[in-house]
Design a protein around this nucleic acid. Sequence first.
DNA 1: GTATCTGCAAATTTTTTGCCAGTAG
DNA 2: CTACTGGCAAAAAATTTGCAGATAC
Lengths: 150, 150
Amino acid sequence: MSQQDQPTDEVLREALEANGQRFTEQRAAVYRFLASTDKHPTADEVFLAVRSEVPVISLATVYKSLETLVGCGLAMKLTYGDGSARYDGRTDPHHHARCLSCTRIFDVSGRLPSEELSELEEGAKDFHVTGYRLELTGYCSDCGRVSVEA
Amino acid sequence: MSQQDQPTDEVLREALEANGQRFTEQRAAVYRFLASTDKHPTADEVFLAVRSEVPVISLATVYKSLETLVGCGLAMKLTYGDGSARYDGRTDPHHHARCLSCTRIFDVSGRLPSEELSELEEGAKDFHVTGYRLELTGYCSDCGRVSVEA
DNA sequence: GTATCTGCAAATTTTTTGCCAGTAG
DNA sequence: CTACTGGCAAAAAATTTGCAGATAC
């Protein structure tokens, strides 16, 4: 484990303890990888990436670790109905843009003004809103050109 | 088939023809059910509901029909990473509210002002936005009370 | 008439689980 | 110590697919 991983590990340790769970090397490795990438990897991609660092880890453990991280609020599970779920290690408010051509997910900064949210809440009568997710769909810079020409 | 289904069938027929696909009783039954409910049924739920009307239909055909409808723009596939995908037959702009307790999905009227969208598009540089999806999370009226007391 | 569609069952893909040994606290 | 975890392999759940007969147009 490199020096600069220590703060990341501390964050994880505290989140785990707050949820009555134990700190383990496997969970740390999964979390370090998630926190270090701006991609939105599948469980299998996490597995492959982590295995090169921590040789002994199983795919089942990756699934269990990811679920634990989601439960502790350190990761988000994203599903799009096209195969595997993806995981996002960013916990600050942000949105996603999904390319309809290459299926990659990109982070988008910015958030909805609270007035917009209030207005939406009114539309959802009798519903107690605790959060929201916004996803843009379209074409990324790599695919956009192809799509326009086609 | 009842009299008031005819317009629904015509909509389906035109959408299918526009996509070079054939009109079949199975697809019509699936579409009629989807268009008639404000629930957001899983493929299996569609299968069970449709089977009571059209006795001979298989689950595989329901999956294929749903995929066809999505391809024709007559339905939307919703996934939340908790088991099966759900399907939504509403095609007008609207949002969803998902209850974190009972996992039901509710329709929410209203849409984002275009100025908000433009602002978000700026945040997604080099991304050609063609649409968006907004999902509120929280607790529905049935679960809200329980959750507050718990 | 012919390309497309359906039903069936088997296959695939993704994710979860049971169980025993290992480890954190 | 003792309960929580990880690894493994098997199971479960969801969805897709190959193929032969049926059907829309």
